[in-house]
Each structure stands twice: as C-alpha cells, then as structure tokens.
Design a protein around this nucleic acid. Sequence first.
DNA 1: TCTATTTGACCCGA
DNA 2: TCGGGTCAAATAGA
Length: 107
Amino acid sequence: MAAARMGNMEIQPDDNYTWRKYGQKEILGSRFPRAYYRCTHQKLYKCPAKKQVQRLDDDPYMFRVTYRGSHTCHFFTKSPISSAAVTATTATVRYGLCSAIWTLLFL
DNA sequence: TCTATTTGACCCGA
DNA sequence: TCGGGTCAAATAGA
C-alpha cells in the first residue's frame, strides 16, 4: 500500500481523540486521495465532527486537514469563533519537515 | 476477541 | 452524469 497512505497517518497528530477512517476517495484535480475520518468508539454516533485530510498536489509535503462540524468531541472549551455561518480558520503548523494547513469549518 | 483499518459499492447533490 | 461523501463487510493486528 501506498507509502503515501501511511504517510498520511504519519503526520496526523492525535488532537484529543482517536479518529476512525471511514473512507478514502481520489479527488479530481488532485494527484493524491483524500481521507475521511470520524470520531471513533462511543463518539461515533454522537459527534458530528468529521476530519478530512488531503494532500496538495503542488506540495506533497503539505497536508490540508479540514475539520468540519461541531467540536462536540473536542475539548475546545474556549472557541474564539462566535460568529454564525461558516468560519474558516487557517493556520500553518509545521510537523518536522512537513507543513500542514488546518482548516476548521463549523457548520 | 475487539477495535481499527481497508476496499468497493451505493447514494445524493450540483 | 459526474464527483464527492458515506456505509458496510472483511481483514489484520494487538
């Protein structure tokens, strides 16, 4: 299996919970497949939060991690985001030699 | 044995 | 119709 696949998980730092991969699909326009994660175990059905990891075709060393949904399963007691609608927070975090773009989407 | 992970197929929306 | 997203079943590893 693809080293790329494992590479995906290699970069994934555990935020506060464990994520269960429930799917993977190749996206047109991207040379790398996108992975879909969800809360595992008991939070499987209670946490609408979903995690989406996609590699940038331009920068294989850059991973775009998109969190979408409420942070029911996260320990984000203080959310700087109070505005309604869709708020996107983009932050650049560097893990070792790779850079990751974290985007938080609250629906 | 249990849980997590993987692949394929199906479903829904634009 | 195509693309994207999700679910389910099977398999592997601990």
